[in-house]
Amino acid sequence: MAKTSLFYKIYNAGPLLLLYYLCISEVDSNLEKIFEIFTLNFQIILIYFWVLKRPEIMANGHIFLAGLINDVVMGFPLGISSLSYLIIIFVGTYVRNKSVNTTIASDWFTFFIAMVFSNLLFFSLLNNFSDLDFSNSKIGYNMFFTLFTFPIFWFLFNIYQMTFIGNRDA
């Protein structure tokens, strides 16, 4: 597909549009109504994968803005989701700079590290600077399901990348 074609541009913008849509709309990745403990942070999976694979389609400024929108919709202090997403970008960019070839296993492991740092910052700030209480078990379930659904989305995003954008990785 020619890189200047309209469709290519739309496909390229797809992940970013999805991120914005997830942050601003009522659509959520929490299936608590079906299975009470099933919640996952889809946004960080989306950001990590695309920062790792195609950083040029996930600009830092857009991710920062999506984080601010997420804070407004969810009722968190402004800037806290942005910080958490920026930690994901930082770890993703670092891993990208350090590695030549990536596999699903290495991406999965480094995603775990990124998620731990990101959530650590997020919940430490919330705990110390807001009145909101959180259940530790909910945080645990959220991290567990986010981690264990990562490979599924890794495959789906890879298929999207190869089908619509083209694989640029070694």
Binding site: N60, L78, G79, L83, L86, F90
Partner: peptide, 15 residues
């Protein structure tokens, strides 16, 4: 267009 570090500082200020 923005480095991660500058955005982290901006997010902290807003927070």
């Amino acid at each position: 267009k923005f480095s991660v570090l500058s955005l982290i500082f901006l997010a902290l200020i807003i927070f």
